[in-house]
Amino acid sequence: MYVPYPQTKKSGKGKIAALAALFGFFILLVLSSSVVVIDQTEVGVVKIFGRVQEKPLHPGLHFVTPFVTEVVRMPVYEKTMEMIGEKHIKALTSEGLPVFFDMAIQYKVVPEKAPEVYSTLKNYEIWMESRIRAHIRDIIAQYKAEDLYTENRELIQADIERRLDEEFRPYGILITAVLIRNIDLPESVERAIQAKIEAKQEAERMQFIVQKERLEAERKKVEAQGIAEANRIIGESLRNNPEYIQWYYLQVLDDFAKSGNSVILVPVPGNFYPGVNVTSTPPLILPTTK
C-alpha cells in the first residue's frame, strides 16, 4: 500500500534548509555591502545613489548603507607623474631653440578635498598633464637653453613648481617637487654652451689668481712696512745709545782673536772707543780668516 506522508515531511525539511541557506547568504551579502575598510594610504569617496558626499571616509573600519552606497578609494600618498619617453616635454627657449627633456612631477591629494577632486576632475591625472605641459612651455620660453645646464635649472624647477602649485592647490592637489632630467639639445648648441661654461670657469679662475696676487702684494707691503718700522725703532735706539754698537763690535773682535785667527789694522775715528778720549786716529783691528 502506498503511503505519501513520509515523503512530504522530507520535502518540507529540504525547503526549510534551502530557505535558511538563502537567508544566510542574504545576511552575508548585506554585511559585505555595509562594511568598508579604508587603508592608511587612501581615503574613501562616498557615493549614495550616485551622489558624491562631502565628507570622505578616513582609514579604518566603516559601516555604510548597503546596496545604495558606493565607496571609491583614492590614494593620498605622494605620487609621481613621469613624463618620459614618448611623453617627454618639448618646448622652445627664448632664443627659439627646441629643447627636449624628461620631467617628474611629485604631488599628492589633500584627504579632506578628495570628494571635490573626484566630483570635479575624476580622471585628474589626465587633466593635470595637459595643464602641466602648457605651463612648462610658457616658462621655458622665458629662459635660454644654457640655463637648463647651469645653476639656473634650479630656478626653472622652482618657477614651474610655484606655477603648478598655484594652479592645482585650489582643487586640493599639492605639488611637492618638480625634477628636470635628460635634457636633449642639438649637438652644435651643446658644444657652444659647453665652451661658454668653460670660458666662464677660466675667467673665474683668473679672477681668483688676480685676487690672490693682490692679497700677496698687500701682504708684502704690510711686511715691508713692518720691517721699515722695526729699522726705524732700531736706528732710534742706536742713535740714543751709540756706545752699545761699539762695545758689541769690540766684543766680537776679541772673541775672534782668541780663536787664533789673524787680524788686520784699519784707521777709525777717535770717538769710536767708548770711554776713551783721543785726538788722533787709533787703529781698528778687523778680523780675517786664515
Rank of each mutant, 00 (worst) to 15 (best):
S34K: 04
V72Q: 09
I48V: 15
P59T: 11
V35W: 08
H58Y: 15
I38L: 06
P59R: 11
L22V: 10
T69W: 04
V46D: 01
K15E: 04
I48G: 00
S32F: 12
S34E: 03
V43L: 08
K55C: 00
R73S: 13
F63E: 01
L19F: 10
V71E: 03
R73V: 09
F67E: 07
R51T: 13
I48M: 08
L57A: 02
H62W: 13
F67L: 10
G50Y: 02
G50S: 01
Q40K: 13
P56V: 07
A20T: 12
I16K: 12
Q53G: 08
F23G: 12
F25E: 01
R73F: 11
V52S: 06
R73E: 09
P66E: 04
M74Q: 13
H62D: 05
A18Q: 07
T41F: 11
R73K: 15
G60F: 10
E42T: 14
P66R: 02
L61G: 02
L57R: 00
S11A: 15
D39M: 02
A20R: 01
T41K: 14
L31S: 08
E54S: 13
V43T: 11
G14H: 09
V35M: 07
Q40C: 00
F25H: 01
V52H: 05
P56H: 02
P66Q: 08
Q40L: 06
F63M: 08
F63K: 05
L61I: 15
V52Q: 07
E54P: 03
V37C: 03
P59W: 11
V37H: 11
